[in-house]
Write a protein that binds this DNA or RNA. Structure first.
Length: 226
DNA sequence: CACCAGGCAAGTA
DNA sequence: TACTTGCATGGT
């Protein structure tokens, strides 16, 4: 089976299992970007608390985040973990957004995707996954987001090498899938959902909707991605 | 109690 | 370039 067919079959089964996820949950593109920073190496559950704090203190806007003292921002970001780092990273992003695009996500979205991606990666605290999450989920650009679960799931099923780097894995999806923003959004969300439920340190591959993949040297038991 | 979560940058050799 | 370490709360 071709990689394309296999990926689409994975997607079909995951959709069948979980239905549409509707990810990313946020009211505005800016809120997506804030969430993307806060969720670095952190469960969404903890991020929700931080977002809620920011909302309750009316700090979830470009202006408010820009004006707020770092210490106050850090206080609200606390439940998301790494809060001193992340509050500074939010500041970095907002400074960038204001400096380059007058604080407008809409204006930022007009930048050609490749160039914008490079510029986002230049902001301290925004790495590949955070940049791509902003591009895809906040701005609707056709960029596939890769994360730890994506790598773990694909390598465990023998579809890529375990040591595949971020760019290679991203290209794998973008080359083998139709260039469809809704598909990219939903597929990545489903991979995370599946990973979180079935692919943790004690994998439950017998219950995983992806366990139909057996013909590619899959070694689902005991293989840890890290 | 130990371990880990949807990363990232900075330091070392 | 390749590897290591710090960052931090909250859930299991």
């Amino acid at each position: 089976m071709s990689d394309t067919k296999l990926l689409l079959e994975m997607y079909r089964r995951l959709t069948e299992e979980f239905g549409p996820t509707g990810w990313w949950p946020a009211r505005t593109p800016f809120e997506v970007a804030v969430g993307a920073v806060l969720t670095q190496n952190t469960t969404w559950r903890n991020v929700e608390k931080a977002i809620k704090n920011l909302k309750e203190h009316r700090m979830l806007s470009v202006r408010a985040l820009s004006r707020a003292p770092l210490s106050k921002l850090a206080q609200q970001a606390r439940p998301a973990g790494y809060y001193r780092l992340k509050s500074q990273r939010l500041k970095n992003f907002v400074d960038f957004l204001r400096g380059e695009y007058g604080g407008s996500m809409v204006r930022m979205a007009r930048e050609p995707t490749d160039r914008l991606r490079e510029k986002l990666l230049g902001v301290t605290g925004i790495g590949p996954e955070t940049a791509d999450s902003i591009l895809l989920y906040a701005l609707g650009k056709p960029v596939f987001v890769v994360d730890a679960y994506t790598r773990r799931i694909l390598s465990r099923h023998g579809m890529v090498e375990q040591e595949v780097n971020y760019e290679e894995l991203r290209r794998f999806f973008e080359q083998h899938l139709p260039r469809d923003v809704s598909l990219f959004k939903e597929f990545h969300a489903l991979l995370v959902r599946t990973g979180a439920q079935f692919c943790k340190r004690e994998p439950r591959c017998d219950q995983c909707p992806l366990n139909f993949i057996t013909a590619r040297g899959a070694s689902p038991r005991g293989t840890r991605a890290k």
